[in-house]
Write a protein that binds this DNA or RNA. Structure first.
Lengths: 112, 112
DNA sequence: AAAGTATGTAAGATGTTGCTTAAACACTTA
DNA sequence: TAAGTGTTTAAGCAACATCTTACATACTTT
C-alpha cells in the first residue's frame, strides 16, 4: 500500500494511470502526452508505477506497452474507503443524535 | 485531491488518521503513540493534515483536539475507485471474451 | 503575576524526489 | 552488419520533505 500511495501522490503519475486505464499504451505514446517533461522523466515515472505494481508491462518488439494493474490499488482503495465511510457513518450518527436532541426545533433542515 | 493524496502518502500521517477516525484525540495523546519521533514532528504532520483538510481542529483550553474530516478524502477516494473499478470491469469483460473464445473448454472454472 | 502544562513555530541538517542531459541498450530494417 | 527507432539507465543537481533541537505562544493554576 505504501508504494501505491506514494506513487499515486504524484500528479504526473496519476495522469499516466488515467492514460493506461482502459488500454495498453506504449511508452512513446505516453511520453507524447507530456511535452513539458523529457522522455527519461516519463520513463522514470513508469518505472515507479511498475515497481509499485500499479501497471503491467508488455514488451513487443521495440516497444513497451503499459497498462493499469487495478489490483495494485486494492489496499489503498480499501484504506481510504474505510477511513471515509466509517467516519461518514459516524457523522450521520451524530446528526441523528443532534436531531433527537433538538426534537421540535424548526430549523433543523439547513444544518449542513 | 493533490494535497490529500500527498498527505496520505506518509505512513505516520496515515497512522494518525486511523487514530482520529472515530473520536477526537488531543495532540499530546497522538504524540504519545509515536515515541519514535519527537513532538514537533507530530505537530508538523498534524499541520500538514489540517492544511490538506483531512482533519478538523478544535481548541479547548490548553489543548487541541484533532478529528478526521472524511469529506477531505472524497476526491481521492473517487479517483482511486474510478481507476480501480473501471479497470476491474475491463478485466471481467476480457475474462468473458476469453471464456467465449474457449467455449466448450472443460477447465474454465479456476481461471482466476 | 509567576510557574506549569500543552502545543506550535523556526532554523537547520539530512535524505528523497523529480528533473535534465548524455549515454547505453534492444530490437528492426536496409 | 550498419544505421535507425524506441526506450531505459546513469549521473548530477535543485527542490522538497521530514526530522531534530531550541524557542515561542497560549492557556491554566497557584
Amino acid at each position: 500500500m505504501d508504494d501505491a500511495l506514494r506513487a499515486v501522490a504524484d500528479p504526473t503519475r496519476r495522469a499516466i494511470l488515467v492514460l493506461v486505464r482502459d488500454r495498453e499504451v506504449s511508452a512513446g505514446e505516453i511520453a507524447e502526452r507530456f511535452p513539458e517533461i523529457s522522455r527519461p522523466a516519463v520513463s522514470q515515472h513508469l518505472r515507479t508505477l511498475a515497481a509499485a505494481r500499479l501497471v503491467d508491462v508488455r514488451r513487443a518488439g521495440n516497444r513497451r506497452f503499459y497498462r493499469l494493474r487495478p489490483e495494485g490499488l486494492a489496499e489503498a482503495v480499501t484504506f481510504l474507503e474505510t477511513m471515509w465511510s466509517a467516519s461518514l457513518s459516524r457523522l450521520q450518527y451524530e446528526a441523528e443524535q443532534e436531531e433527537r436532541t433538538h426534537t421540535g426545533d424548526q430549523d433543523t433542515k439547513g444544518s449542513l
